[in-house]
Deep mutational scan, measured.
Amino acid sequence: TETYTFDSEDQAEEFAQRAQKKGYTVEKRKENGKFKVRVE
């Protein structure tokens, strides 16, 4: 499980979609103005 942090929602969304296409489970959340994407 890895967590990635992005400054913009667009970046987080793009990353999450790519990860989902590769078959990963993706969980997105906003925390302290940053966008976190957890991938497993």
Rank of each mutant, 00 (worst) to 15 (best):
E31M: 05
T3M: 08
Y24T: 03
G33H: 04
F15R: 01
D7S: 07
G33R: 03
N32R: 05
Q20C: 12
A12R: 01
K21S: 12
F35W: 15
K30D: 05
G23Y: 03
Q17W: 09
A19M: 15
T1E: 09
K22P: 04
G23Q: 02
F15V: 02
T3P: 04
T1H: 12
E9K: 05
G33Q: 04
E31S: 05
K36V: 15
E13D: 14
G33A: 03
G23A: 02
K30G: 06
G23W: 03
K21M: 12
R18K: 10
S8Q: 08
E40W: 15
D7Q: 05
E9L: 08
K34A: 07
Q17S: 10
Q20E: 11
E14N: 07
K28C: 15
K30H: 11
R38K: 11
A16N: 02
E2P: 07
R38F: 13
F6S: 00
Q17K: 12
K30C: 12
E14K: 09
V26E: 02
V39W: 04
K22R: 12
A16H: 02
A12W: 04
K28R: 11
V37F: 01
K34P: 01
E31H: 06
D7R: 04
K21D: 13
E2R: 15
G33S: 04
T5I: 12
E27P: 01
E27Q: 11
E40K: 13
E13K: 05
R18H: 09
A12L: 02
E40F: 15
E9Y: 09
V39K: 01
K21T: 08
N32V: 03
A16M: 13
F6A: 00
T25A: 10
Q11H: 07
T1Y: 14
G23S: 02
S8W: 07
G23V: 01
K28E: 04
E2I: 15
Q17G: 06
E27C: 14
V26Q: 02
F6E: 00
Y4R: 05
G33Y: 03
K36R: 09
E40M: 15
A16L: 09
K22Q: 14
A19Q: 11
S8V: 06
V26R: 01
R38Q: 09
Q11P: 03
E13A: 07
F35Y: 12
S8M: 07
T25C: 14
Y4K: 03
R18P: 00
E14G: 05
V39Y: 03
K22G: 10
R18C: 15
D7V: 06
A16V: 08
R29C: 14
Y24Q: 05
R38W: 09
Y4G: 01
V39H: 02
Q17H: 09
R38L: 13
V37H: 00
E9F: 08
K30S: 10
T25M: 11
